[in-house]
Design a protein around this nucleic acid. Structure first.
Lengths: 138, 138
DNA sequence: AAGAGATGTAACTATAATGGTTACAACGGT
DNA sequence: ACCGTTGTAACCATTATAGTTACATCTCTT
């Protein structure tokens, strides 16, 4: 099965790093902590910036949080890095045969159920904040 | 973002079809309702068979449910078609820098939270049965 | 026994998302 | 003006998906 991209876990990593750092963090520094390429970090930081979660100082360099860590939920992060046209976790096959009672109804009926399931997942993400995560670090 | 495969929605479609059909359904017939290639149907039916949800009559052809529709939850179907090594919805970036307090702790802390979110989604799927879906068809 | 229709798979293709990389323009302090 | 940083574009390899063709195998019917 195709899993949810590591962009999400890396984004959480970045925000935790910014939360515990007193000074601004450069992409280089973050990349060493995450253990990946700085460009990957810049791309994700760009998404977090667009979502209003962080601010970046161009030229001089360094990112910092725009909100208290306790005001950033995992759902905020999830939404920020999955920025896409569709926000639907589940895909539904399209163009089923409308001459069949199942084909005619399946999409609407399934859509409702699957959105409920996605909502349950998102609400669980909304219960946890970056602040709560960093409090668990030693 | 990468979404969950249409295998899942097609599998639900197939099971609904079997639930309302008095006679066994052939792959050809199902494929016309789903509007796809018969091989796609055979592959998915194979997964459902392996999961014990349907039985197939080889040679003569035709599939049928092995359980009452009310005893098949969407979670059963989800598990059947996502049959894979890992059952984890979220991926976490690996090998972060253990010399960093975030890199050292992020995986364990995040793992816990993300499994909770996945669990919430799955429990919502477990609340709906194939029987409930077909009851909503006109 | 042979044929017809169905299933079970293997093999192949095209498409898309992901994760990584190099390259370079633009920015802003020193 | 220089240097380090950010912001992107472009490209590549890998992987999952969805679809297709092909064919062996199975079971019922004739």
């Amino acid at each position: 099965m195709k899993q949810i991209s590591t962009r999400f876990s890396i984004a959480v990593h970045i925000l935790c790093l910014l939360a515990i750092s007193s000074t601004d963090c450069t992409g280089e520094f973050i990349a060493r902590s995450v253990n990946t390429n700085p460009v990957i970090i810049r791309r994700i930081v760009g998404m977090l910036k667009k979502a209003g979660l962080v601010e970046v100082r161009p030229g001089v360099g360094g990112a910092s949080l725009r909100k208290p860590p306790d005001d950033i939920t995992l759902l905020d992060v999830y939404r920020a890095v999955n920025a896409t046209e569709v926000d639907q976790l589940f895909r539904i096959h399209d163009a089923p045969n409308i001459e069949c009672p199942v084909g005619r109804n399946i999409e609407a009926v399934l859509q409702t159920e699957l959105k409920e399931a996605q909502f349950a997942m998102e609400q669980r993400l909304a219960q946890t904040t970056v602040g709560q995560l960093v409090a668990k670090f030693q």
